[in-house]
Amino acid sequence: MVAVRFAGYGGQGLLTAGLILADAAAVYDRKKVIQTQSYGAEARGGVSRSDVIISDEDIVFPKPDRLDLLVAMNQLSVDKYTSALAEGGTLIADATFVTTVTFPDYYLIPFTQLAREKLQREIVANVVALGALIELQGLVSKEALAQALAQRIPPAALNVNREALEVGFEAGREAATARAKAVQDYDIV
C-alpha cells in the first residue's frame, strides 16, 4: 500500500493531479484506490491537499495514517505535512517556491519554473510534478498515466498537458541522475 499526498495552494491543480494518479491506478492499472481531499473555503489560495492510496488489497480506512510520498507545491505544505511522512518516505517539492526542507529523503525540482519556461503555462506545473513523481517512484505505468490524463483533461488542453508530463519525466530523470551522482561523489570522498 502506498499513500501519496499532493499539497499546495488551492488553484495549483493538486486535486487534478490526484485524480489523474487515482484514475491511472484504478481504471487502467486495476489497483484498489481511494482518493480523498481537504480544502479550505478559497477557490484560489489557501492550503489544499489531495490524498491517494494505492493498494493491491481492499482499502478499509480511506484516510492515510502515514504518508509514503508528499508532493508539496509550496513552503506552507512542506512545513505543514512533513511530519506526516513515514520513516523511509520521500518528499518531492517545487523548488520554485520551497527553500527549506527538513526531511532526509527529498527531491527539489522547480516544477512551476519548468512549466513557465518550457511550456509557457504555469498552470500545468501540477502535471509536471506528477510526471516527475511517476518517473521517480513508479506507482503506475506510464501507459495508464497517459490514458488517465486523456480522460481527465479537456481535449483543448491535452497537448500541453502531455508535454508537461514529458517535461516532468525528464525532470525526474535528471533529479535521479543528480542524486545518484551525489551519492557516488560522497562514496569517493
Partner: peptide, 9 residues
C-alpha cells in the same frame, strides 16, 4: 463529507 467527497474504485 468524507464519504461524499472521496473517490473509490
Amino acid at each position: 463529507e468524507v464519504v461524499a467527497h472521496m473517490r473509490e474504485d
